[in-house]
Design a protein around this nucleic acid. Structure first.
Lengths: 347, 347
DNA sequence: CCGGGGCATGTTAGCGCTAACGCTACCTCG
DNA sequence: CGAGGTAGCGTTAGCGCTAACATGCCCCGG
């Protein structure tokens, strides 16, 4: 039965050498049936210790490696998850990706990624489709955009999908850091320092995280009956923070600014420095993300830390539930933590 | 974890649902053989236009999706590449990952990632092994560590592997940014400002990039017969840069420092600021990486830019060559570019 | 009017694996 | 001492797909 000379064997033109050993090859060498080898390899079903030894020796000698494609074909399970990631170096999304990969690997899953540049209905749809062809068992969409919600609604319902950090109205479970509460904490911290109000440098309008942070800031002010200054908007980049900072310089009553992320806060600090405004003496600044650099800005930045490992863990857990058939649709929040540093230090 | 009591007892806990349509289902609906459907789907072989229409209609109606596992099993090609990535948020590795994913996607490949925390012989070996089980056709190892070279030597030779940014003595092609030349440029730039020598804040000793940057700095000084100050070493983090900065403060003749990356340079700036040392008036500082923040540090940082998109493109190109059977072993360098900003500005 | 060569399709044989069941010992217990 | 287990294997039948060959058909030249 190990006679493989008969069928068209010289079909391979590019001659990749001897093909990978299969169960049958191992079985032949160990003098057992391929099923016994399968049982040894997968530890399914009883095998006599000495038989196992023979099989393992043959596996070792031949360098046998199970063929995932065949296994997937017959079992319908690939052991792979898909992640739709945003192609960006932004601290949050990148950290989230690693957090998920981490949790997945610990559970024995592989991870296939497919990045999208500009999330819209089609590109997320395409990404999901391309991952499905890779036979993933479940998909995580890192979709911080408002439009992502709509895109997710169009995703076929016969595969487990969870979204992280977005997908507001999406018909899928969503995990995210509690942006609203983080913004509230930062704002209240600034107010507690005695300011009459707090300005806000917001992120792009089509990012849910930007909206939530803005809402957290706005409602905190409103709850206290304080004046809500006009929002200045950036695009997360240090450059946009810098430009916003130049626009803010000279505003009457500018005493405290809450930036929607640390990178923009850095730009702010730069603009203020150039304008001769001292932080924290003249104006106090808080950011969001706690990037590793934040503690070493000039001055060190008060910010809101997000636990992305935890986000990854929760995301994976939820995806597992979905894959097992659970009908989870809740929104899961991971708490945010305020880190106080000199940029809001006592004067 | 889900406890499935006995193999084969109640494996399918979740929706047994109608299984995905197969070629046969489409064939049945279109009234043709499954082979004709295959030909339509893959555009291989002649099919009458009206037949094609019927088939496509059935494909559409049933929502047919080709089964990659089956296709892989029979063709031996999976259309997927593997990337062994470093689990870190470091700007370089993360950017490289996206660069590669980009190039791969444009060429129609999927990407599976497997991250390793602490690269050593075993973990890279494990990662490669785990990717092979996912039937990847080629593997990119983002391996900036010295040990990675040895680990790569132990990787079986029957699969295409290329390394990016490391793997010095590895028996595989290597792509990297020209760290040596980048460091040389930064150092010469600092010297051109009239300093007698340049200090160096190096990266971890077991990172090849750190070694190359240090060598570029050292040999530039030596070529000019200048004194080579003792190297201060950090771990890439802003914190380590800060600590190094505190150690450097007060050194006699400290006029110019070249930091092996921007994050550490930020720590340096912080330490100098706290010590009352002005940059660039008292000491001039250059970094490496050109992270997006660098232009907004206080002061804006002179640094060396790396083109990671280009690295990704070249890496993928080389991997393609390898997969096609080419025996490429060269070391490919992507040039680095010096970006001059205020931290080395004219006094 | 017939045979050869294409075009458009169908048929068959696996790829490597696991699920499901079959078969033989041997062992236990009433 | 026979019925009924169970450990330890083997055998068979696909999973969905593609490569290779087989078939029917029509067109055309001889």
């Amino acid at each position: 039965m190990v006679d493989r000379a008969k069928p068209g064997e010289q079909a391979r033109t590019s001659a990749p050498g001897p093909r990978q050993p299969s169960l049958a090859d191992v079985a032949g060498m160990a003098g057992v049936s391929h099923m016994t080898v399968s049982r040894v390899v997968n530890e399914s079903g009883p095998v006599r210790p000495e038989t196992r030894e023979r099989v393992l020796a043959a596996v070792q000698k031949l360098g046998y490696r199970p063929n995932t494609a065949a296994r997937t074909l017959v079992t319908g399970r690939s052991g792979t998850l898909g992640v739709v990631a945003l192609e960006s170096n932004l601290y949050g999304p990148a950290s989230t990706l690693y957090g998920i990969e981490n949790a997945a690997r610990e559970a024995g899953y592989g991870v296939a990624i497919c990045s999208v540049t500009r999330p819209g209905r089609t590109s997320i749809g395409d990404a999901v489709e391309s991952l499905r062809r890779q036979a993933v068992e479940g998909i995580v969409v890192i979709a911080p955009h408002v439009t992502a919600g709509r895109a997710l609604a169009a995703v076929p319902g016969d595969i487990a999908v969870v979204a992280v950090g977005g997908g507001e109205s999406a018909p899928v479970p969503v995990i995210s850091v509690d942006q609203y509460d983080g913004a509230r904490r930062a704002t209240e911290h600034l107010l507690a320092l005695g300011h009459k109000t707090v300005w806000h440098l917001a992120g792009p309008e089509d990012w849910l995280e930007a909206r939530d942070r803005e809402r957290g800031w706005r409602e905190t002010l409103e709850r206290r009956g304080l004046r809500v200054p006009a929002v200045v908007r950036g695009d997360w980049s240090p450059r946009s923070g810098y430009e916003a900072g130049r626009a803010l310089v000279g505003k009457r009553g500018l005493k405290a600014v809450f930036s929607a992320n640390d990178q923009m806060a850095l730009g702010l600090l730069r603009a203020f420095t150039e304008a001769g405004i001292r932080v924290p003496e003249d104006v106090q600044v808080a950011g969001f993300d706690d990037v590793p650099e934040a503690a070493y800005f000039t001055p060190p930045l008060t910010t809101v830390r997000q636990d992305f490992i935890e986000v990854g863990r929760k995301t994976f857990g939820l995806l597992e539930d979905r894959m097992a058939g659970g009908d989870v649709r809740a929104r899961h929040l991971v708490p945010a933590e305020l880190i106080v540093r000199e940029s809001t230090g006592p004067r």
